[in-house]
Amino acid sequence: MKDMSVISVRHLKKYYRVHEKEPGLKGSIRSLFTRKYTQVKAVDNIDFTIEEGELVGFIGPNGAGKTTTLKVLSGLLYPTSGEVSVLGFNPWDRKAQFQKQFALVMGQKNQLWWDLPPMETFILNKEIYEVPEDQFKKTLDKLIELLDVKDILKIQVRKLSLGQRMKCELIAALLHNPKVLFLDEPTIGLDVVMQKVMRDFVKQYNRQFKSTIILTSHYMGDVKELCERVIIIDKGKILFDGKLQNVIDRFARNKIITVVFSRDIDQRKLAEFGNIREYQFPRAKINVPRKDVAKLSAKLLSDFPVADLVIEEAPIEAIIREVFTGKMKQTNA
């Protein structure tokens, strides 16, 4: 059966061998003669498929295997075992036909020539990807406008701010109109304003060009705003793959009820409703089990002098954190 997905990953494993060194000079000398190796399972048997036009968020703590997966998909790393197909190609073959259709942007790496203005890298990439002159001009003008970088194109890259540089990194990566885009921590180190600019841009790019995008990020804000689907990965294994909303439904045990009282109340009585997160008259925040939320809020309204009441989901950051710390194992089962 022919796989129609843009990206398909089956039983992917990537193990590294790293050598351990005892601290100090003695350890250094010893490591010259005998090296002790340990195996690191960066990616440990994962499966997923991604369809055309999807914008998928990869989330997980440091060392979870997100970047390793992206590197395998880009053909940078040779998988230990498993099958990987991107746009019908085996990435590791690094065929020019494949490379002309995808791009990898790493927030902590740069491809721009450090001592030259960004425009020089753009022109070089135009030749490397063999982009026709008119298409190059059109794409460049559009990207320059979307990211508002007209004034910095002739300034040495080393003199640009991190935000300006990141914008230019994106342009350099997108000049050949890639169908598939891997964004590894594209907002790392950026201030909130610039993070928003980046998010808006990625969203717009995904919509306008129907490109397939995988995004990894530490910031839940990126994922929450951009990705309908998330893949949660930790210690090389996939913990969850599905709609972001389902993460909440599946993993969030509690909801948060915020109450504003019209008169001071007895805190001990309030504690019977759930875990009081904070209380400072007239406002209280209580964690209550999801299944009891309707019943408990009705009881709150009848037992206390309530001026206002709001029911909210726990913040997504907190839910994900609980997924990783394993607190959710029981509810997950």
């Binding site: 590197k71 053909g75 791009a103 790496k109 490397i128």
Partner: peptide, 12 residues
Amino acid sequence: SGDLNNYLVKPI
């Protein structure tokens, strides 16, 4: 440093 990545993903 790993900057080799930049070339390995490009048709060059």
